[in-house]
């Protein structure tokens, strides 16, 4: 059963690894590389961001917060997008690993969303003079944070783990409409938050000495997601084996 590989990392290639044992072997092989790449990229990004990149003309040294804030915000959206793909995979094609991927990703996405809000607040205070402002982008990111929390609460609210995964999948897909709102809110509404300067078509409106640490941190965070995802997926699969063993033991009395 071959599906053409799409830009998503879920549909095509993962079908070959629907077999849990095979997937585990792949995960175990990938793990040290992912962890190593994570450490390298983050170390390089931190070095460039804290020591090499120049201070900003207007914002001075506070611009260095950007090197954690922006990658964290990107990851908050990226992880959710992955969860949405996994949820669709679970509900439409009943992909056996999809539910676990969504469940394992949620804490990572929640952490990045929290960091985006927290570092954003610390960046906003010297820049705008306030810890918080109810503009379109901040409000929708806060909503994203609550959707993540709701997802985790829902997935754990059922005795049957599969029911929890499927219910959370529906919730994730309903909340996906939040993503374009977050992305485009700074364009649609006159907000305090600055518009996009990296992902514009054409040259990014940001100097390369600042772009490199930004991209390296983003890459490092992505490897972090993969690394932690592998850890949590393996833990989930162990948990279901332990549950199955408990059931067997209970049946034998």
């Amino acid at each position: 059963m071959n599906r053409t590989a799409t830009s998503s990392q879920q549909s095509g290639s993962l079908h070959r690894f629907a077999n849990p044992a095979r997937f585990l072997r792949l995960a175990q092989a990938v793990f040290p590389w992912s962890a190593g790449a994570m450490a390298l990229c983050i170390a390089a990004g931190l070095y460039l961001g804290l020591f090499v990149a120049p201070p900003d003309y207007q914002q001075g040294e506070s611009v260095r917060i950007m090197y954690v804030h922006v990658p964290a915000a990107w990851m908050a959206l990226f992880v959710y997008a992955n969860m949405a793909l996994a949820s669709a995979s679970l509900l439409i094609w009943r992909h056996p690993l999809a539910g676990l991927i969504a469940k394992a990703s949620a804490p990572v996405g929640t952490a990045f969303t929290f960091l985006a809000l927290f570092t954003g607040s610390l960046w906003g205070k010297p820049m705008w003079g306030t810890w918080w402002v109810w503009d379109a982008r901040l409000t929708s990111v806060l909503i994203l944070f609550f959707i993540y929390l709701g997802h985790m609460a829902l997935i754990n609210a059922f005795e049957n783990p599969e029911r929890g995964q499927k219910a959370a999948a529906v919730l994730t897909l309903v909340g996906v409409v939040n993503l374009p709102i977050i992305k485009f809110s700074v364009d649609w509404w006159n907000t305090l938050h600055q518009p996009a300067s990296v992902t514009r078509i054409g040259t990014p409106a940001i100097h390369s000495s600042m772009l490199w640490p930004l991209l390296l941190m983003a890459l490092g965070f992505t490897f972090y997601y993969v690394t932690v995802l592998i850890l949590r997926l393996r833990a989930e699969m162990l948990a279901s084996r332990l549950r199955a063993m408990n059931r067997l033991a209970a049946e034998e009395g």
């Binding site: 260095r64 954690v68 804490p107």
Partner: peptide, 30 residues
């Protein structure tokens, strides 16, 4: 940090703590 130390260092510190914390919690669970 040009006077912004109170904003920059907590940003990096909390980020490091949260991400490292999640990593170790996940590792320990496994």
């Amino acid at each position: 940090m040009g006077g912004y130390a109170a904003f920059v260092w907590p940003s990096y510190a909390v980020s490091g703590l949260v991400l490292a914390g999640l990593f170790f919690v996940s590792w320990r669970e496994l």
